[in-house]
Design a protein around this nucleic acid. Structure first.
Length: 487
RNA sequence: GGCCCCAUCGUCUAGAGGCCUAGGACGGCGGGUUUUCAUCCCGUAAACCCCGGUUCGAAUCCGGGUGGGGUCACCA
């Protein structure tokens, strides 16, 4: 038997911002295709004209690219199965609906939404276990149908679900799943606006685009039987299905919620997370190599990823704490300068993140002091602000002895001939000893006077970069405003 | 409610009948290094949902219960 070429896909709907969970699913699909030298296809499922959001497609495409993931076929790049927008494939769906109609596997339905609503209410009132279409229009004979069609009565096309059939399919991560056909509604295939429903379009496109593996969130499990039925009605081979655990918020709640932080894929980037770090974090949400290795590049992931290793579980918590840790790992290990291959170093990333607000040369100089202290790019501003602008100093947080401390610092630093770290260390430390200051207390006052903060990078190393003139200016400014106080 | 799926530390997970006194990582706690904050290092607490069965032996297999989740649209 010939093995099918591996082709996976991700099919976003342009109904809003791209969710971080979608990036995770996309990543798995992408990696699986790459692992087997297959193709990863991107398809836009824009069949819902009511929820359609203008510009959403472009934004989705942008985010995916900003995470460094690329598709082999799809929008912008094209491919052998164009078009990749479902809204441009309407005739294809119509044609296939006709095939099913001819086979008796589908039928016209002229019921109005009002009637369907009423029908469901009645079913509920009678405590029917699960509401389903009552197949009223299945009783229509040919002439009635033709007349309604001729009169342009709005209609949908429904799938005719076989009676008393056990629908079984194999899921690569879950195993065999089977559902009685009596539990499945006569699904709408073509909506009254002529557009296909998701269930119909997805099956046709996956088949036509020769998708070999369908990997998606496990919330799709209940609708997979509908798809199976469609494959069978057409007489097509089914792709392999693999349903992966969905993401949930830590603690209370289920879905990821804005209440707990970023949700949209783009937000994480805006908050100063590195794409590689987010991806690395995402890899482990439902998958594990079975070793202790946790830091993974994309290439390593492609190599080690396998569907067998996907965790067979229901929900996976999105631990923002661990993401933060992961990001800090990547920041710490980042090269500061740009790499020879053109990959942006930490310096460039920070420069870009803040839109050029901070001078790149200064960023480069101070980064060694900050690399172990920032967990996101955004935090750079909090910790490094004093390098770029004069801080506000709250004198209330200084020690009682602050004036003596700062006066000594001015005296010592002013007399320094060389402005190296060891010169500063030695000068200050010996003076501290000589004057019998408490080392910690002195340096804290000194730190606050120069930076305005109690938590900073190493102070002596910082002032080396800040420069003698600037440091003395800051010390004198703090002293000066209080110099009229005499003891 | 019907149907479907799931069940190991707080979290992500390792674990495919004996290697489990259940391992790793994040987080927590304690300590060390340190002029602050971090980093780094060391240590520590913390889990097999319950009940039956199979077996010489079960976190691992089977059954039931309980709990959680998903889904039941002319949305995807």
């Amino acid at each position: 038997m010939e093995e099918k070429r591996v082709r996976t896909r991700m099919a976003p709907s342009p109904t809003g911002e791209y969710h971080i969970g979608h990036i995770r699913t996309l990543l798995y699909n992408w990696a699986f295709a790459k692992k087997y030298n297959g193709d990863f296809i991107l398809r836009i499922e824009d069949t819902d004209r009511e929820r359609f959001v203008a510009g959403a497609t472009d934004r989705i495409l942008e985010v995916i690219k900003s995470y460094g993931l690329v598709w082999d076929e799809g929008p912008q790049v094209g491919g052998p199965h164009e078009p990749y927008f479902q809204s441009q494939r309407l005739e294809i769906y119509q044609k296939h609906a006709q095939i099913l109609l001819d086979k008796g596997a589908a039928y016209y339905c002229f019921c109005t939404e009002e009637r369907l609503e009423k029908m469901r209410e009645e079913q509920k009132a009678r405590h029917v276990v699960s509401t389903k279409y009552d197949r009223l229009c299945l009783k229509l004979d040919k002439s009635e149908i033709e007349k309604k069609l001729k009169d342009k009565v709005p209609y949908v096309i429904r799938m005719k679900v076989p009676d008393n059939k056990e629908i079984t399919f194999n899921d690569l991560v879950i195993g065999d799943i089977s559902v009685p056909s009596s539990d499945i509604d006569d699904q709408v295939l073509i909506k009254s606006d002529g557009f296909p429903t998701y269930h119909f379009a997805v099956v046709i496109d996956d088949h036509l685009m020769e998708i070999s593996h369908v990997m998606r969130g496990n919330d799709w499990i209940p609708s997979t039987p509908k798809h199976v039925l469609l494959y069978q009605a057409f007489g097509w081979d089914m792709p392999y299905f693999a349903h992966i655990p969905n993401l949930k918020e830590m603690g209370a709640g289920k879905k990821l919620s804005k209440r707990f932080g970023a949700v949209a894929a783009k937000e994480f980037l805006d908050e100063g997370y590195l794409p590689e770090a987010v991806l690395n974090f995402l890899m482990f949400l439902g998958w594990n190599p079975g070793t202790d290795k946790e830091i993974y590049t994309l290439n390593e992931f492609v190599k080690d990823f396998s569907i067998e290793k996907i965790h067979k579980t229901d929900l996976v918590a999105f631990d923002r704490n661990k993401l933060l840790w992961m990001n800090s790992q990547y920041i710490q290990k980042s090269q500061i300068s740009d790499l020879p291959d053109g990959k942006a170093g930490l310096k460039s990333q920070i420069f870009k993140f803040f839109g050029g607000k901070y001078d790149a040369a200064v960023i480069e100089k101070i980064l060694p002091l900050l690399q172990t202290r920032i967990k996101t790019l955004k935090e750079f501003a909090d910790l490094a602000g004093f390098f770029f602008e004069k801080p506000k100093v709250d004198k209330k947080i200084l020690s009682n002895n602050w004036k003596n401390h700062l006066s000594m610092a001015v005296e010592v630093l002013e007399s320094l001939e060389k402005w190296g770290k060891s010169d500063i260390d030695e000068g200050l430390l010996s003076a501290v000893k000589e004057k019998n200051f408490k080392t910690g207390e002195f340096f804290m006052d000194f730190r606050i006077a120069v930076t305005g903060s109690k938590f900073t990078p190493p102070i002596n190393e910082s002032i080396v970069i800040l420069g003698k003139y600037e440091v003395l200016k800051r010390l004198k400014a703090v002293l000066g405003s209080k110099s009229n106080i005499k003891y």
